[in-house]
């Protein structure tokens, strides 16, 4: 593998480019696996943490101002390390501790926010997929800002009014399902919902 710069790798992640993702996996996964496995984790945990790390970097890469100033591998490692620390903390097995002069200290708060955002995204997607195919299609069209008139045409509804009603029903159904999940409350300020 020819060494790609952090920018090229970010670009590859943004494009969901398989070749880039494969080369990152080859280069970085063994280190992440080692980190997790020697700290009370297993191969499966390592895979999850690695994927979370990449998804967080993907979220960040959507922001044009985002730049990785160190080696990509180092950055990914620091993100995964933090995610694993957080996980150990949750299961009260925190044997790794953050060191005072950790060079990535400043990133951590943002990473935490991105991590939670990705968790919520996955939760939303999970319940979206439990909706009827009809509902999924209507919501997809609606969230993509397609007009009710066009939605009605595509879906073969009798009227725009019915399309509006259907979209509303589907959305309420999805929101209810999501809010019922205890994880949603965990990821949000419970009092507000």
């Amino acid at each position: 593998m020819t060494k790609k710069s952090a920018d090229e790798l970010l670009n590859g992640i943004r494009r969901n480019d398989k070749e880039t993702l494969e080369s990152i996996y080859k280069d970085c996964f063994p280190v992440i696996r080692y980190l997790v496995v020697v700290n009370n984790g297993n191969e499966h945990d390592a895979k999850d943490i690695y994927q979370e790390g990449i998804l967080i970097i993907y979220q960040k890469s959507k922001n044009d101002d985002f730049k990785i100033t160190c080696a990509f591998k180092t950055y990914l490692y620091s993100v995964c390390r933090l995610l694993w620390l957080k996980h150990l903390d949750e299961i009260k097995q925190n044997k790794l501790t953050l060191i005072e002069d950790d060079p990535f200290k400043d990133y951590y708060e943002n990473i935490q926010l991105d991590y939670e955002k990705n968790e919520r995204y996955q939760l939303y997607r999970k319940y979206f997929l439990t909706l009827s195919i009809d509902c999924q299609r209507v919501l997809e069209l609606y969230f993509s800002k397609v007009s009710l008139k066009t939605i009605s045409k595509i879906m073969g509804y009798k009227s725009d009014k019915y399309a509006k009603k259907r979209k509303h029903q589907c959305k309420i159904s999805l929101i209810k399902k999501i809010k019922r999940d205890s994880k949603f409350k965990e990821l949000n300020n419970e009092e507000l919902f």
Binding site: N16, L21, K47
Partner: peptide, 10 residues
């Protein structure tokens, strides 16, 4: 799609 791709590669 990215998540699916990562899973596939793994």
């Amino acid at each position: 799609d990215l998540k699916n791709n990562l899973e596939k590669i793994h």
